[in-house]
Computed example of a mutant assay.
Amino acid sequence: MTTKFIKATTLLQAPFEKVLQECHPDCIVADMFFPWATDTAAKFGIPRLVFHGTSNFALSAAECVRLYEPHKKVSSDSEPFVVPDLPGDIKLTKKQLPDYVRENAENDFSTFLKACKEAELRSFGVVLGSEICMSLQRLGT
């Protein structure tokens, strides 16, 4: 299903570009699973923000695991490790990590996630689901 999902997301690029030609928005907020949106936005001179539906904490913890690979320093799937660069002692085990991280496997999905990360780094910023929810709550919606 992963390959089909990735293919399906790329099929949205051409129709999206057609909409941009007609509408000329001031910015684009596109889901993280649309890495092509960064190049599309640049093509039209529009800033792109990456949307992550997760919380700031979850995204930060995942990034610290990605950068520092603390799970590679433990000897078993159940041995806890501290996630570096987060306040406090946030502990996880390898069992709690996604398979592609735990197994350090290069597959279609991990390659796709790398492309998503590269596109995010070239974007104008990130919008997180938790912040949107908090903003909507403050507005009373």
Rank of each mutant, 00 (worst) to 15 (best):
V126H: 01
V83Y: 11
Q96I: 08
D26E: 06
I28E: 07
V19W: 15
T3P: 00
K72F: 03
K91P: 08
V101H: 05
K72N: 10
V65D: 07
D26W: 00
Y68E: 12
A61F: 06
A37Q: 05
F34N: 01
N56Y: 09
A119Q: 02
F16V: 13
A8Q: 09
A61T: 11
K18M: 11
A14V: 12
A8D: 10
V82R: 02
G129P: 07
E22L: 10
P25D: 08
M134Y: 09
R138C: 06
L12T: 06
P80E: 11
L86T: 08
W36C: 09
V65N: 09
L59A: 04
K43N: 04
P70Y: 13
A105Y: 05
I90T: 15
V29Y: 01
L121T: 03
P25T: 07
L20G: 00
F5L: 07
A8L: 11
D31M: 04
L128H: 14
F51L: 15
L97Y: 00
E79T: 11
C64I: 00
H24M: 04
S123L: 11
F33H: 04
T111V: 13
F33Q: 02
T141M: 06
G129T: 10
Y68P: 01
F109G: 02
E79S: 12
V83F: 12
D77G: 08
L67R: 14
E69S: 13
V74N: 08
F81E: 10
V29H: 00
L139E: 10
Y68M: 06
F51R: 08
L20W: 00
H52Y: 15
D31H: 06
E63L: 05
V82M: 00
R138M: 06
T9Q: 09
A42G: 01
K18V: 13
G88F: 03
K7E: 14
S78Y: 12
F109Q: 01
T111W: 06
I132M: 12
Y100T: 07
D77L: 14
A105S: 12
F34M: 13
F112N: 02
K4A: 05
A42S: 07
L139R: 07
M134L: 12
D85Y: 12
K95M: 08
F81Q: 13
C23G: 02
A37V: 07
Q96A: 13
E17Y: 02
C133P: 00
F109P: 02
K18W: 04
E69F: 08
